[in-house]
Computed example of a mutant assay.
Amino acid sequence: METVISMKNVSFVRENRVILRDINWKVSEKEQWVILGLNGSGKTSLLNIVSGYQYPTRGEVSVLGHTFGKTNLPELRKQIGFVSSSLDRFNQTLESETVEDIIVSGKFATIGLYHTVTHEDRQQAEQLMASFRIDHLKGKTYDTLSQGEKRKVLIGRALMAKPKLLILDEPSIGLDILTREEILALIKEIIVTQPCHVLYVTHYIEEIIEEMTHVLLLKDGQIVAAGKKEEVLTDEYLSETFQLGMNVRWEHNRPWVSIEKKSMLQRS
């Protein structure tokens, strides 16, 4: 499998509103992508199509070798790990679950355990906990964890099924700087050690670590630029995407941005 994701002339319309327009995008093996854009730019709809929860209004989509219209989408979803703040809607169910049970449930793509769990499943969950350095949380319930610990547990859950594609939708939202860097270090470890491709969605350019290779910029449902991060993360492309004058600098192979004062004055 050389192509991980392929979108050709993809549009998505809901209630006569165009959410995505003429998306042409390809993700190849060994590429790790970041998706950037303002709220309302189409990021969520793009992710929902990739994960098989929404069907494009027009265009051709292929994910992990599965061509939409010719494949079983529930089977495709079993190959995709998903971590998002949208999972918070299941907190009432999660809060009384133990850390290890939540991680094991990822094998079955369920919230809560409703299947027979083998000794091997338990061992795999414990190995994930050890590699994420959260094995000390064994036996603790979800409601007793910090936000950072919860995020690590959900990432472990997403990896339990050994996905070929891992979608991380703003995994650092609501975290302090120290915890955010711990999550980014964990993602680096996943990229280096796990046989999966990452789609990382964020609002913060400085979260693009060295191991993330490509960037997709979205604005009003259209692609501003897509390609290698060094070619896409320019002052011009970012200023167009975020509708602000932005300047990019690179430190330790990570991009950082500043906002032009004149640009801020014009918007105030």
Results as ranks from 00 to 15, higher is better:
Thr3Phe: 04
Ile5Asn: 07
Phe12Trp: 09
Arg14Ser: 09
Arg17Ala: 09
Arg17Lys: 01
Ile19Pro: 11
Ile23Ser: 09
Gly37Tyr: 09
Leu38Tyr: 03
Gly40Ala: 05
Ser41Gln: 12
Gly42Cys: 13
Lys43Met: 03
Leu47Gln: 02
Gln54Ala: 14
Thr57Ser: 15
Glu60Leu: 07
Leu64Ala: 11
Thr67Pro: 04
Arg77Ser: 12
Ser85Pro: 14
Leu87Asn: 12
Phe90Asn: 10
Val99Lys: 03
Ile103Asp: 09
Val104Arg: 09
Gly106Leu: 03
Phe108His: 10
Thr110Cys: 05
Tyr114Val: 09
Val117Ala: 06
His119Asn: 10
Glu120Asn: 12
Gln123Gly: 12
Glu126Ile: 04
Met129Phe: 13
Ser131Pro: 01
Ser131Gly: 00
Ile134Cys: 11
Asp135Asn: 09
His136Ser: 03
Tyr142His: 07
Asp143Phe: 07
Gly148Glu: 13
Ile155Ala: 06
Lys162Asp: 14
Pro163Cys: 09
Glu170Ile: 08
Ile173Ala: 15
Leu175Ser: 08
Arg180Cys: 09
Leu184Thr: 04
Ile191Phe: 07
Cys196Glu: 00
His197Cys: 06
His214Leu: 11
Leu217Phe: 02
Leu218Met: 14
Gly221Ala: 11
Glu230Thr: 06
Val232Asp: 00
Val232Thr: 05
Glu236Cys: 05
Ser239Lys: 13
Ser239Glu: 12
Thr241Ile: 11
Gln243Tyr: 04
Trp250Cys: 08
Lys261Ser: 06
